[in-house]
Amino acid sequence: MKGHKLRLALLLSVSGLFLLAWIFPIFWSLLNAFKSEQDVLAYPPKLIFSPTLAAFRDVLFGPTSIVPNLVSSFIISIGTTIVTMVLAIPAAYALARLRVPGKKWSGFYVLATQMLPPVGIIIPYFLILRDIGWIDTYQGIILIYLSFSLPFAIWLLVSYFEDLPFEMEEAAFIDGASRLMTLWRIILPQVRGGVAVTVVFVFLNAWNEFLFAVVLSGNVVRPVTISMFNFVSVEQTLWSKLAAVSALAMLPVIILGIIAQKHIVKGLTVGAVKGGGRR
């Protein structure tokens, strides 16, 4: 009995340690955002201090405001999400529920596009966009983001469309509804949940993207993940401001992650599960 209790205590402390290891870096950077610059610099690190919103005030309303960067991130993410969904919903519907010529092949194609190393496609994209003058434009970056968001969205949506019973369309056809009408009026409302989950993940991936943004950003398109670097330089780091910017960059995705928590495993594994031919 005593050995049992000891084991339980050990297991609890090990799992507690993991929990702490995951929470702490995030918690710590959030905490530093509420400190004054002196409190951030205190060594040993300070857990107890008088909180202040000065860092947030500075990065939002100060001379180096990051509000334009947040706006930029939102424009990129929302734009990518809209274009992706408009293209992905019809394609996923066709792949999941219609007899498509070369269906197997097209499914594989969608999967293969997901494996491309981003470094590989940013080089040609940089050259092409430079030639047509689309560097540092929203249309340029959104177009490139389709390379990863579109295959992902198609796969995720296919899994939701496949879950619906086939009688649904048959009934609608017998009633004389056109195919497009059936998709829009009958099928789409049934997969609302799946569409919402897909929207969340596409937005999240676009918000977090970095490599394409580094190469293609400029004075117009400058997402918050890039503007972070303004606060760290060789000469000095503006610690509390950096913490505030990180907090603002993290906030939207943490909120979305918690909203979509039940679907996160599905969202993270969708391509691979499909690729193996397993349901």
Binding site: M228, S246, A249, L256, I264
Partner: peptide, 15 residues
């Protein structure tokens, strides 16, 4: 477990 996974690797790296 959700928290680290949804964050941008760039922000995680910076932190």
């Amino acid at each position: 477990a959700i928290l680290p996974v949804v964050l941008s690797p760039a922000v995680v790296g910076m932190v």
